[in-house]
Amino acid sequence: MIRRVLALAGVAALSGCAVAQAPAPVSAALTVVTFGDSVAAGTDCDCTPFPDLYAGRLGARSLNLAQPGSTAQDVSDEMDSEEGTDAVRGANVVLLMAGANDLADAFDAGTGAHGYARAADGVQREVTAAITRVRELRGPDCEVLVLGYWNVVEDGDVAKADYDDDRVADAASATRYADDALRRAAAAGGAAYLDTSAAFKGADGQANPTGLLAEDGDHPNARGQAAIAAAVYEVLPDPPQ
């Protein structure tokens, strides 16, 4: 496995226009399995979520087990379930996206840096355990990609309306804690890591992501889901069969 930590500034152009990709012919030899939260599940999108878009671009089967509200521990527990274990055993690619809800809870509680650090420690522990479980079940013949977040709570115009400047700064801090934890977990498990912030905020992190977000300002809309799928494809364009 080659460890890759990518900012993927090149996908930032998708914030201007997300171009739909025609799906490749379906290959029974490839299966993409996803564990994660509402972003991966496609909540508030009324569209095809990024794991299915990515699988379609590969011509692969998609088994999306992401659930709205899932924490990092929920994802780790799901992987240990009979359904999760069976899914991993047949996977060529495993996508993991969890941790936003852990840090969002700390943000909502107003716990500050101490609370963010405690929540991030839990995220790192559980995601590392999930990667380890994939290796136990599937060995080296499976790509594992851990996805980070552009924001663990509201962003864009909605955040500007709902949060004052201090809360906007707190949201950015909570997101850094989450992403740092996910990056460390990926490194510990020999998985790839994808920083999705460039897809939503540009290479310099300053672009307004509103056009890629649903009306709640929290979840990706169809363009946002397409942007994540394109970023995933840049990391894993040719997974092993």
Rank of each mutant, 00 (worst) to 15 (best):
N221I: 03
A214G: 14
P239S: 15
V168Y: 02
G36C: 14
D157G: 00
G217D: 00
A230P: 06
E78Y: 01
A13G: 15
M79Q: 01
G42T: 04
A12P: 10
T196R: 02
E83Y: 10
A198H: 13
L14Y: 14
Y233W: 14
R135E: 07
S15C: 11
D121K: 08
P140K: 07
Q206S: 13
Y193V: 08
A187W: 05
T48L: 13
T175N: 09
A172V: 07
A129N: 10
D180V: 14
V158S: 02
R167F: 01
R61H: 08
T85D: 15
A98W: 02
N208K: 05
G84P: 04
A72V: 09
P49V: 08
P237Y: 12
Y54I: 03
L145C: 09
G16M: 05
R176C: 13
V26I: 11
L53H: 07
D80T: 06
D141H: 13
P49H: 12
V33F: 01
G110T: 03
E215W: 02
E234Y: 11
V93Y: 04
D52S: 10
D162R: 12
Y163C: 00
L58P: 06
R184N: 15
L96F: 11
L213M: 02
R167N: 00
E136G: 02
L147Q: 13
A231N: 12
L212N: 13
Q225P: 10
L58I: 13
T128H: 07
G190F: 06
T196E: 04
A231K: 10
V26G: 06
L213A: 00
G211S: 05
R183Q: 14
A186C: 10
G16S: 13
D46P: 06
S197E: 14
Y149Q: 15
R176E: 14
M1Q: 05
W150N: 07
D204P: 11
F35P: 03
A98K: 03
A203E: 14
L6P: 03
P220M: 03
